[in-house]
Design a protein around this nucleic acid. Structure first.
Lengths: 307, 307
DNA sequence: CTGTTAGCGCATTCAC
DNA sequence: GTGAATGCGCTAACAG
């Protein structure tokens, strides 16, 4: 690989001029300019990103720590984020993590100057204490950090309203296992039921179980009837549908399953009503936040999506 | 962020000694050693990765260009790759691409010293001419490059054998739209049919159509009967199942769908027989290849997976 | 307009 | 054992 010296020599100018042409590029005689460009072309010269980073004290890398648990959703975020970052000439350094400790370790290892910023995406578990500079997207909690959260109250309300309008008034909820997200979802659920004058039945809610299958079994074991089931994402929804079928419960005739996050639909889940969040929009805001073009943490509302 | 000078000053030694302790670390008096470690601890010092890279002429980053078309599969590779790279203290720089030009551009942009190596994963379209150093994993072609390919002949053979044993002899094939992978798949299909003394019927094969839905429509429009359908991956399989249902064709009673790549099963596709490739193993070999611990391009066989 | 110089933070000689 | 000096490739400040 050729470097700036090679170009300077071939173009008969100094390194500084080469640098000027390829960067700021103003205040350079057209003649030298052309010479530099020609030389660069001939040598197929690309400024070394590492050297630029060291000099400018900023790599153009953003570290993304991505939760793997509901990987389908996360992948959607990943694609959207990469697209936005790409448009801003930034690179995406990927790291997967599925629990508290992995996130902590990843954050540690990426805090050595390699990244300009860090983002945690889609964590469905309690996070370690992170530097305030770290951004959280769609995580269970994160009110004190730079973050973009889904409006869980709104989502739950919308879901309940929709289901009530479908004459489904016994609505079960398999909630997040912890975090603010769980509390907010419950709040929206509660509120909407109240608006529809449907009594709240504690027996219809499971909010301390990370496995959908077990949550659903517990729900069924309780023997309470329900005509609708709220789950937190599409993966859970699909699993729920399969289990309900195994229990001879017809979906959606007997139980309508509703996904509180169907942002990245998989083939086969089209028939499940859901709340869909605008991934591109979220990614765009996230990147703007990271780049300092925007300053307020965001609460994003999703829209109702029915087949 | 503190740097090596701060540590050296606090520990009352020179930069060189600090570097020795935190890197090679031999030939240093225990006393200084402790002093350095203590100072580093106090200052929470982490050697700057960028500076190390510039000095050592090797970032520990591997660029991964990931095809998005059948994203579920790719995500599996992504996770497996990240895990392996992580174990080797390497970072994964992610880039998505969905066509010839995007790959070319991504390869360009990542060839500026930021990455030590480049990998293209899961491309289902013709690739641009790439540097020989670039590794291909599960792409349509790539015999001249460093690569890890699935044994498509073996997969198709296995599929056909299985289906024939299930008394399904009219086996339709919706093949890859191009590349060696298509040719090899067809070869395996052909060979296995021959072994089972089933005549080859050109009408049962579609190999110039990138959309499964359209391919399947064409197949059905042709009016040929088929009791089994081979498709190239799970996403396609699920779409095929849905379409077949719309055509009132019961799956698997009337048509058994078989996925030639079911490495990353989604909920709901469990009932579809498939060939499953060992993702972790593939990722491990890939990383070994990248790191020069191994030198031969690989052909990987997948195993039959039935519910 | 352009060349020279001095860092960026670290690893690595080479003397002592 | 250890410190001073040099270089990785580039950008920026400062002279001319």
């Amino acid at each position: 690989m050729s470097n700036i010296n090679d170009v300077a020599r071939l173009a008969q100018v100094s390194k500084a001029t080469v640098s000027r042409v390829l960067s700021g590029s103003r205040g350079v005689k057209e003649e030298s300019r052309q010479a530099v460009l020609r030389a660069a072309e001939i040598l197929n010269y690309k400024p070394n990103a590492i050297a630029q980073s060291l000099s400018s004290q900023s790599t153009n890398c953003i570290g993304v720590i991505c939760a793997t648990e509901h990987i389908q959703q996360s992948t959607g975020y990943l694609q959207a984020l990469e697209k936005q970052l790409n448009q801003h000439q930034k690179h995406l350094l990927l790291r997967f993590a599925n629990d508290h400790d992995s996130v902590a370790q990843a954050a540690q290892e990426l805090s050595n100057g390699l990244c300009d910023a860090l983002v945690v995406v889609g964590a469905r578990f309690p996070l370690p204490e992170l530097d305030d500079e770290i951004m959280l997207i769609d995580c269970l909690s994160g009110s004190h950090n730079l973050s973009i959260q889904c409006d869980h109250i709104f989502a739950a309300e919308t879901a309940v309203h929709y289901l009530c309008n479908q004459k489904r008034r016994q609505i079960a909820l398999i909630n997040f296992a912890s975090g603010e997200a769980a509390a907010l979802t419950l709040e929206g659920y509660h509120q909407a039921l109240h608006n529809h004058v449907v009594p709240f039945n504690r027996q219809l809610v499971i909010d301390d179980e990370s496995s959908v299958r077990i949550a659903l079994q517990r729900l069924i074991n309780r023997g309470v009837k329900f005509s609708a089931l709220l789950v937190t994402d599409d993966t859970q929804a699909q699993e729920a549908v399969m289990m309900l079928n195994q229990y001879q419960l017809k979906v959606p005739e007997q139980v309508m399953v509703f996904s509180l996050d169907g942002s990245t639909r998989m083939p086969g889940s089209n028939a499940i009503p859901a709340i869909k969040y605008p991934l591109e929009s979220i990614a765009r805001r996230a990147v703007e936040l990271l780049l300092g073009e925007r300053h307020t943490s965001d609460l994003v509302r999703g829209s109702l999506l029915i087949a």
